[in-house]
């Protein structure tokens, strides 16, 4: 049994303009101590996937299908009481902008201790000690003094470290990080990523790392999910995804980013405009932007196909290649 098993998750927002199918059939599993990356362009459903797991969706949002099992326990439909024991205790989340989750009117120490007392049965003194210990763990210097300060007295990097401390205070099994370093400078980003990496090794938790930065994925992740228009288009080990991409969107993504030696060459952007979830095409959602699109791509969506034991993709090109390999004819 995996730590977390997500099966055919479907989440929609019911807006004036209609049903927005933000997550449309997402499945994956996460093992103890692993780092899973979720990448994809903005609006592809990365955050909604995370918020669905935590069940912290906006009022208009609803999980309309599928299952989320934590240690075998079904969370979809389990109710708010169960979710309250899950959030913070078993799964924690950190957001892109720490200011959205830190209260500017309370000291860092107050907020950390509140979180600890809410999720554990520590008393005030014990919570204080635990808070100081957590700040020290995330490399905040002079933690006793920092406890007395307000969020605005801290730099962006420091605030993000406080958020991590808060998220880890109850030793969750899973840490979900939604673009945790996007707003930070590279040197601070490197500090935070390194910190997450070492804490993950030390505490043995699993991490779901949501990012649009393929560099962050390459550095941190064991497994990668690539999302497009609410679905997973490709999934596999980091090495498979980077060195053997098997979905045209992933390939396009890899070609479009500058690398250490791309200077002097032209990048190859993905053409066209991002998907409009209210006007989803019938076949492959990437077909309108795909240079390799075939007739079948427009007619019918490709099912997810196993490429090898570490890799799956939903792209007709693989079916074509398999057919050609088998028959020796061009499809």
């Amino acid at each position: 049994m995996s730590l977390l098993e997500v099966n055919n998750l479907q989440t929609s927002f019911f807006t004036d303009a209609g049903e927005v199918r933000a997550v449309n059939g997402v499945s994956f599993s996460l093992e103890h101590g692993k780092v899973l990356g979720i990448v994809g362009e903005s609006g592809s459903g990365k955050s909604v996937t995370a918020y669905s797991i935590m069940q912290i969706l906006a009022d208009t949002g609803k999980i309309v299908g599928g299952s989320i099992k934590l240690d075998g326990q079904e969370l979809v439909g389990a109710g708010e009481k169960v979710m309250r024991t899950v959030r913070g205790n078993k799964i924690s989340i950190i957001f892109q902008d720490p200011m959205t989750s830190l209260n500017p009117t309370y000291t860092i120490g107050h907020q950390l201790m509140e979180a600890i007392m809410l999720h554990t049965d520590r008393n005030k003194q014990q919570a204080y000690e635990r808070a100081v210990e957590m700040l020290r763990l995330v490399n905040v210097n002079e933690p006793e003094r920092r406890m007395k300060q307000y969020p605005h007295e801290h730099s962006g990097g420091m605030r993000q470290r406080v958020m991590i401390a808060m998220a880890l205070a109850c030793e969750p099994d899973i840490l979900i990080a939604d673009e945790p370093t996007t707003a930070l400078d590279v040197t601070i980003q490197a500090q935070i990523l390194e910190l997450m990496q070492s804490l993950q090794k030390e505490l043995g938790m699993a991490i779901i790392m949501i990012t649009h930065d393929l560099g962050v994925v390459a550095q941190l992740c064991d497994e990668v999910i690539v999302m497009y228009a609410g679905s997973i288009c490709e999934q596999g080990t980091a090495d498979e995804i980077f060195y053997n991409p098997r979905h045209e969107y992933t390939k396009g993504l890899m070609r479009s980013i500058p690398s250490v030696d791309s200077a002097g060459t032209k990048l190859q952007p993905i053409t066209g405009t991002p998907i409009d979830l209210l006007n989803m095409p019938k076949g492959c959602p990437f077909a309108p932007r795909c240079d390799a699109a075939m007739k079948i791509c427009i007619r019918e969506r490709c099912e997810r196909m196993q490429i090898n034991e570490n890799h799956a993709a939903a792209c007709w090109m693989n079916v074509k290649a398999a057919f050609e390999a088998q028959t020796g004819e061009e499809a």
Partner: peptide
């Protein structure tokens, strides 16, 4: 040196082998 070593390179083998030069403290 530290700035350049901190760049996350989109290539897992290079990224894993990369030795980052950590900076202490804040600006």
């Amino acid at each position: 040196k530290s700035l350049i070593s901190a760049v996350p390179v989109p290539d897992p083998k290079i990224a894993r082998a990369n030795v980052r030069i950590a900076l202490k403290g804040d600006i």
